[in-house]
Nucleic acid binder design. Structure first.
Lengths: 187, 187
DNA sequence: AATCGAGCGTGACATACATCACAATTATAA
DNA sequence: TTATAATTGTGATGTATGTCACGCTCGATT
């Protein structure tokens, strides 16, 4: 597990063993079971999470009780209700396990502490945030330019694994179409 | 103009006069006219821009020649094709002036230089990136949960000024509906 | 003043997609 | 194993939105 964390960070910035120890002392390793709720809508968002194994969904429940998937988080992804995390307010989304999942959890306090004690981590977080921002913009573009079928094909192309790991209902909820429509697209 | 830049940065992090001078030496003040193209699709993206006065649109031209607005950028906003900017590749979107516009331009090189010479700027860029990411996620949510009429109302509520500054056709292109549909929504 | 084009509204029609209902299959748990 | 729930496909129908066509207004240009 530690190796995966180290690898993940060194993918962007090199680390000495001491530096990695410092990082390790600021995060905590946690295990969740399928259907567990890591972040609950309405509660404080104290942490963000790096997925080591498993699969999460970041969901928004609308007023009609319908669930919308803002994002999937698979191995090697950071996820949280970042809006609430950074402003330290209540979650308006939930983070739930689609599979049994292991994560490294980083609290907001330790996030700040680590950023000052090990400034190069700021660079790391910045690059992560930038790529998250780019990914979101691509998703917006796909809503603007593509119909349901095209969005579905783009998703399959981008994350072929996802297709086997999550029920179609969830893919539909991510794509913004009904499960019936998605079903008809496949045929 | 300098005051606006200083104010903008000090909104997030305090600066000494020396620090601000250092920043000033890394950016350049530029003026553009309505309909000018600041970033052209297909070309290198060397800079990102802080809007001081005016209004920009970040647009994507699809294969059918249709224009889609990924983002508006008004006073106090940073904008660029960030995906291309950070990876230093060709722009897949264009950045165009809706009004006469003045900006501060920051090259990628100076961005890096500034980040190392004045580490607290990393914090600034990080916070900017985070809020950009949050804004994008909200836009995604609005596509997932709302129909055209609701998205239109949300937009008006969030940016009441925009309504008076840009033609409806552009609002439609931002919302992802045809101008005819948008027109019918208003009545 | 005359002309042109951008912006906007609106009718008629086509299409993509949602919703509701039901059945079949497959996983999960008791 | 049996029972129960989750997942998926598919028909019938309704609705939101796109597309094409036309005309009106208003400001810019000549």
């Amino acid at each position: 597990m530690k190796e995966k964390l180290k690898e993940h960070i060194e993918n962007l910035i090199p680390l000495t063993d001491e530096e990695f120890s410092l990082i390790l002392s600021h995060v905590s390793f946690e295990k969740y079971k399928k259907n567990d709720c890591i972040i609950q809508e309405g509660e404080d968002v104290k942490n963000c999470y790096l997925v080591i194994n498993g699969l999460l969904k970041l969901v928004y429940d609308d007023k009609n009780g319908k669930q919308h998937i803002v994002s999937f988080a698979m191995e090697d992804w950071w996820e949280s209700d970042f809006s609430a995390y950074f402003s330290q307010t209540k979650a308006k989304m939930s983070l739930q396990c689609i599979e049994d999942t292991t994560v490294y959890s980083l609290s907001f306090k330790n996030h700040q502490k680590l950023s000052t004690e090990l400034p190069k981590m700021k660079q790391f977080f910045l690059e992560k945030s930038n790529s998250g921002h780019s990914a979101s913009q691509n998703r917006i573009l796909s809503f603007l330019t593509s119909n349901a079928k095209e969005r579905y094909e783009q998703l399959l192309k981008q994350y072929p694994l996802l297709f086997q790991r999550v029920p179609k209902t969830l893919l539909a909820s991510y794509l913004g179409v009904s499960r019936e429509t998605l079903s008809r697209l496949s045929s």
